[in-house]
Amino acid sequence: MASHGGDHIVSPKLYVTIWIILLIFTGLTVFAAFQNFGVGNPIIALAIAVTKATLVVLFFMHVKYSPKMIALVIGCGLFFLSILMVLTCSDYLSRAWKF
């Protein structure tokens, strides 16, 4: 059963490592927010958030050890999210004369 995707046992050591990395990134994002990187600030904040979310998805949510179909579902979701964001922004940002 261990060979099958659904029942992979991850060692607690790995969970604790991921937990420590997540806490370090939280400290890092607070530290970065107090620096002045200009337009870089939101980019750094989001890059850290995406990294943290990826770690949670891959290890805490076991996607690294799950069937490929799960990754496909997540990919579809992110694709539709990007349509929502990109098309909304392309509309608003191309109407600069309104505000």
């Binding site: 939280t26 994002t29 607070v30 927010a33 107090f34 620096q35 002045n36 600030n41 939101p42 904040a45 989001l46 850290i48 958030a49 943290k52 979310a53 949670v56 998805v57 805490f60 949510m61």
Partner: peptide
């Protein structure tokens, strides 16, 4: 567990977007 981690991920994005818009003096 998947649900709980998902709620955690939402907060991972809410925290920088709401609390950290710009803190530099």
């Amino acid at each position: 567990g998947l649900y709980w981690h998902f709620v955690d991920i939402i907060w991972i994005f809410l925290f920088p977007l709401l609390y950290l818009v710009s803190r530099s003096p």
